[in-house]
């Protein structure tokens, strides 16, 4: 794919400004610094060599020491005044500053003074250099969970120690697990711990606000097959071949379709909308539909609707508010601790 002209221009100007301060630099080092190939650096140098001020006589051109080039070293001898690195554009500053401010406010950074200090100083130097505060974008990621839990996870990650956690699933089942932590990932409103779980004998992702307790052990983490280096949120939410459910909502419940991984959303003429999703975690879906019930117009398949209604009727019976049937044997909680849908 052809490189965009503006990206290449940025690098061409960057190379001259950098070399002006750095002196002779090898082609390989330049390639690494500017994230490109040595062959591309050669092309860039060739282009710079014939660029300059109007007239384009030898004295007008950017110049390099030809003998050095033959040895694979780029040695700038004439910069034609292009020695100043470019300031960050507004958009670039906005994107950097907003990301750093959000990172600074995450629990994982706040829990660790050394990390806080680095983020803080990077942010300060950046805002000093870019001038006006970039307030056009304001991102806050949600708090990850209990301060002690987050601090135990951060510490275990840094020391590469095994963790013992008490975890409650989205189906409300509590369990104790030994895990080797891999990564703490804050995505929007939740923080997730990616880890090797000894109970499941597999990589698992845990929502940090559902970790009730975390204790750092002094056992070093081991390497495991199939360890997750990145949390694949696509796979995490993918429903695979789970059965489909279709729910029609009143407009007020629109956020559900926006925040839940769904297969499709269909807007209806009267403002209602219909969501189709994979039922990967029946306990979570039942609970969600009870929570949203005033805005739920219909649920299909029928069995799902009856399941939701049955659970609600049981609850009403406990309140003494409804005359619903009481089926004490109904078991609703399955161990879906690490089911694909972490909600």
């Amino acid at each position: 794919m052809a490189e965009r002209a503006d990206d290449r221009l940025l690098r061409l100007l960057g190379i001259v400004a950098y070399l002006d301060g750095a002196g002779p630099v090898s082609v390989a080092d330049l390639a690494r610094r500017f994230g490109t190939t040595p062959a591309q650096i050669q092309k860039d140098v060739d282009a710079l060599w014939v660029s300059g001020t109007p007239g384009y006589w030898p004295d007008d051109l950017i110049d390099f020491d030809a003998a050095s080039i033959d040895r694979g070293v780029v040695h700038l001898t004439e910069a034609r005044g292009m020695t100043r690195p470019l300031r960050l554009g507004t958009r670039e500053a906005v994107a950097l500053v907003a990301a750093l401010r959000a990172m600074k406010a995450t629990d994982a950074v706040k829990a660790d003074p050394a990390r806080s200090a680095v983020v803080e100083s990077a942010l300060r130097k950046l805002t000093d250099a870019t001038g006006e505060a970039a307030s056009a974008v304001d991102v806050r990621l949600a708090p990850g969970g209990d301060r002690q839990v987050v601090s135990a996870i951060s510490s275990a990650l840094a020391a590469r120690h095994r963790l013992r956690i008490r975890y409650v699933t989205s189906s409300d089942v509590v369990s104790e697990r030994d895990v080797d932590p891999v990564r703490l990932h804050t995505q929007d409103e939740f923080a997730y711990l990616a880890a090797w779980c000894y109970r499941a004998e597999a990589p698992r992702t845990f929502r940090v606000d559902r970790i009730l307790e975390a204790t750092e052990t002094d056992i070093p983490v081991r390497s495991h097959p199939g360890e997750p280096s990145e949390i694949d949120f696509g796979a995490l939410f993918a429903g695979g071949s789970s059965p489909l459910a279709t729910i029609r909502f009143a407009p007020r419940a629109r956020w559900f379709a926006e925040e839940t991984p769904v297969e499709s959303v269909r807007n209806l003429p009267d403002g209602d909308f219909e969501v189709t999703l994979r039922v990967t975690n029946p306990g979570w879906l039942r609970s969600s539909l009870i929570r949203l019930a005033p805005y739920v117009r219909s649920v299909s398949p029928r069995a799902l609707a009856d399941d939701v209604a049955g659970a609600a009727a049981q609850a009403l019976a406990v309140y003494g508010a409804g005359a619903g049937s009481w089926d004490a044997d109904r078991v609703t909680a399955a161990d879906a601790a690490t089911s694909p849908n972490p909600h």
Binding site: L289, I290, R291, L292, A293, P294, V296, S298, V299, A305, D306, D307, V308, A309, G310, A311, A312, A313, A315, L316, Y319, A321, G322, G324
Partner: peptide, 15 residues
């Protein structure tokens, strides 16, 4: 809470 539970209990009945 009861309002939500009541609405949910109604979901299983005939439309």
């Amino acid at each position: 809470t009861l309002r939500r539970l009541t609405a949910a209990a109604a979901l299983g009945t005939a439309a």
